[in-house]
C-alpha cells in the first residue's frame, strides 16, 4: 500500500514528502498532537470542508470567510484514495489565507478525506501536508453551527 503514497502514482509528488516514517507512525504522531489540542480528525475535516464549500462559490475567485480569504480551484477529473478505499475525490484544491497572520494553508478535497477517514495529514514536506496546530490557528472562526459532515 505504501507505494500508492509515493510520487507519480496518484499525484505528481505523492503524499509523503521527505518523511521516511511508516504511514502508521505519521498518523500516530499527528493523533497525539491532535489529542493534546483537544480536537479530533473529524472536527478538523469538518472545518476544512466548510472552507472548501464556501470557497467554491467564488468560481476560482477569492471569497472572504470569517477572518480568512479562501480560493478554491476545481479541475476536471477525480483521484482515488491512496489507502485503496473505494470511491473517488474531485480535484479540488483550497487555499485558506489569514491576512492577520499572513499565513496560509493549502489542501485538497482528498486531504479532507484522508484526515476524516484515515487521520492522515500527509508526510512532512509533502505538498498538501497540514500541521494540525496550524490548521486550527489559521481557520479559527466561529462557524461551528454551519459545520457539515460531508467530505
Amino acid at each position: 500500500m505504501q507505494t500508492h503514497f509515493g510520487p507519480g502514482r496518484i499525484s505528481k509528488d505523492g503524499f509523503l514528502g521527505e518523511d521516511s516514517r511508516h504511514i502508521h507512525d505519521i498518523i500516530q504522531e499527528d493523533q497525539r498532537i491532535l489529542s493534546s489540542l483537544g480536537w479530533t480528525s473529524e472536527r478538523i475535516a469538518d472545518r476544512l470542508q466548510f472552507f472548501i464549500d464556501e470557497g467554491k462559490k467564488g468560481l476560482e475567485g477569492k471569497v472572504s470567510v470569517g477572518k480568512c480569504i479562501v480560493c478554491v480551484r476545481w479541475d476536471r477529473g477525480m483521484v482515488p484514495c491512496p489507502f485503496n478505499e473505494p470511491g473517488l475525490h474531485p480535484k479540488i484544491v483550497a487555499t485558506v489565507f489569514s491576512p492577520a497572520q499572513k499565513r496560509e494553508i493549502r489542501y485538497s478535497q482528498l486531504s479532507v478525506h484522508l484526515i476524516r477517514r484515515h487521520s492522515f495529514f500527509g508526510g512532512k514536506g509533502s505538498v498538501f501536508r497540514l500541521e494540525p496546530k496550524t490548521v486550527l490557528e489559521i481557520t479559527d472562526i466561529r462557524f461551528e453551527s454551519n459545520e457539515r459532515k460531508s467530505g
Partner: peptide
Amino acid sequence: IRLVPEGICTT
C-alpha cells in the same frame, strides 16, 4: 492544457 496542481500529465 492548464497546469493542474500535482497533476501528473499537465506537469
